[in-house]
Write a protein that binds this DNA or RNA. Structure first.
Lengths: 140, 140
DNA sequence: CGACTTTGGTACGATTCTCTGACTATATTG
DNA sequence: CAATATAGTCAGAGAATCGTACCAAAGTCG
């Protein structure tokens, strides 16, 4: 089977677990698309355009999703002190709470994968995928 | 960075390349969602319900996408000889042509990845991801 | 066999996601 | 300062997805 599809299967398993746990933790209004975008928000906040670029959607789509995230209290928009045109999307406390849940699940799932593959093979997997970013991820 | 997201980055790179080549080969009406579903069609044809299950969408969504694929000439629906309720979705010649293009790109991209990672690491990557399916893919 | 349950698929309506095109305001560059 | 590029929004439309409800054929079991 082709490597891309194999990657997809693993990715989807992780995303499904995360979204399930997040919903069970009470954040049941968060959608997959919102989550994918929010996952790109940096600790100091990120511009809408950067979010759009990294998530590979248009500015309009990113704006649409951030509107929803903002209305639901997950993020806030603050002026960018270095550019009056721009605004920084930042995590609100409610957003941080979701991130905490997501991180926990990621750790748990990775532990399960490690149990299945072994420590050595898991480390190699991470190393290979990280190295691949050099040629597959324009924002690495 | 978490393993799931790393998988996603690699997967998306592959999908983007495939869709680009397919569009350039003249199949510019094929959408990503249609492609994801069509990728699950087996050589002897596959039932709509099975397609939906494997692609993790509802039967309705699968039906909606197959309708489009059929109208565009990529697939046909034939009665399932073993079950009068069911119909098998099969590749039409136009669909086979797309598959050929996609396979070529997959091979090319995997070769690029191998060039970057080395033969040994690529083999380990494939092996790890394949092994992971045992715990991440209910349809493995 | 005949009632009940399961399974394969469709129909309808609503919602979510996404894009294209056009536009405003601020920054940058020459 | 004039020309151009960048950050973001608005409006409208198309694509993808789901939930509910339904029908018809299979399978199950008394």
């Amino acid at each position: 089977m082709n490597l891309g599809l194999l990657c997809f299967i693993a990715y989807r398993a992780m995303e499904t677990e995360v979204m399930k746990a997040v919903a069970e933790a009470g954040f049941d209004d968060l959608t997959v698309a919102q989550g994918r975008l929010a996952a790109r928000i940096g600790p100091e906040g990120t511009r809408l355009t950067d979010l759009a670029e990294q998530a590979q959607v248009t500015k309009q789509t990113a704006g649409f999703l951030v509107d929803q995230l903002e209305r639901a209290g997950y993020v806030t928009r603050t002026p960018d002190p270095t550019d009056a045109r721009a605004r920084l999307v930042r995590m609100a406390p409610r957003g941080e709470a979701v991130v905490a849940v997501a991180r926990e699940v990621e750790v748990r799932v990775e532990a399960e994968w490690t149990r299945h593959l072994g420590k050595r093979a898991t480390a190699q997997l991470r190393s290979a995928l990280t190295s691949l970013r050099e040629i597959t991820d324009p924002y690495a």
